[in-house]
């Protein structure tokens, strides 16, 4: 039964900051091995929603299920739920990895150090094994030569590819991307998107908040269009890009010349 569950299932997620509604009744399923692209104007709640998935933001109400298991809360035997303890939450987060807009590499560690940090110190994997794994991951994003470099010597595109390796090193069930190319110079966007395309092809479950419409159209299995804190449209990318159902989506796409 659990196997049939979607990798990520958001159910009626609402989020308020100081009484201001940022997300309203957001529901979205992401099937195992599929890629969901979340698009929409800035301030529409896309990033907040993504951050709810790994509980960096706590939904005010609603539920996040990861392969059927609730995130952030534990069902109590009497019925109802209680919030996870810090330890339980940390453990749950190891199942979801995240790639940030501004890379968020740890500047005091080398590239290799960044990639093995969490596997060794959070998951408790043997160091040799983690290093071997990390070198393989770095090779696959074309950065094996940079293993011993410090992050500040890398270009933005290289930093983001390291960040992707760092996320993959956790062997996550789901990979979250929060506008991974928005902070990059235009000539570096391609190298990052290419890595992401490969991951999608290999069957990684991904949720991607992005403004790269071409990427969303070509790679996504599902598109979710956000506006003003709600999901306005979901579905097949071809349908969304060629025949959007709502005015708001049409106006949004016009701005991208689609």
């Amino acid at each position: 039964m659990a196997d049939a569950a979607p990798a990520v299932s958001a159910r009626l997620v609402c989020k308020q900051f100081d009484g201001i509604e940022v997300l309203r009744d957001v529901s979205l399923d992401v099937a195992k091995g599929s890629t969901a692209c979340i698009v929409g104007p800035s301030g529409s709640g896309k990033s907040t929603f993504l951050r709810c998935v790994n509980w960096l933001e706590q939904p005010t109400t609603g539920q996040i299920l990861l392969n059927g298991a609730p995130m952030g809360v534990v069902p109590s035997p009497k019925g109802g739920t209680r919030p996870m303890t810090a330890k339980e939450l940390a453990l749950a987060r190891t199942r979801v990895s995240m790639v940030f807009q501004h890379f968020a590499l740890w500047p005091h560690l080398t590239v290799l150090g960044n990639v093995i940090e969490a596997p060794v110190h959070v998951l408790g994997r043997p160091r040799d094994e983690a290093v071997e794994d990390a070198r393989r991951l770095l090779a696959r994003v074309g950065l094996e030569a940079k293993a011993d470099a410090f992050p500040h010597t890398l270009s933005g595109g290289q930093k983001q590819r390291v960040a992707i390796s760092r996320a993959l090193a956790m062997k996550p069930e789901v990979l979250l991307f929060d506008e991974p190319t928005s902070a990059l110079d235009p000539e570096m966007v391609g190298e990052v998107l290419e890595v992401m395309r490969d991951l999608a092809k290999e069957g990684m479950t991904m949720m991607v908040v992005t403004h790269e419409m071409a990427f969303a159209r070509d790679v996504a299995d599902t598109i979710a269009f956000f506006d003003a804190g709600r999901v306005i449209e979901t579905g097949d990318p071809k349908a969304f890009f060629t025949a959007p159902q709502t005015d708001r989506a049409r106006r949004f796409l016009t701005r991208y010349g689609i």
């Binding site: 979801v96 990895s97 956790m170």
Partner: peptide, 9 residues
């Protein structure tokens, strides 16, 4: 946040 997202306490 990156540390938190990796499951660090």
């Amino acid at each position: 946040e990156a540390a938190e997202a990796c499951g660090m306490t």
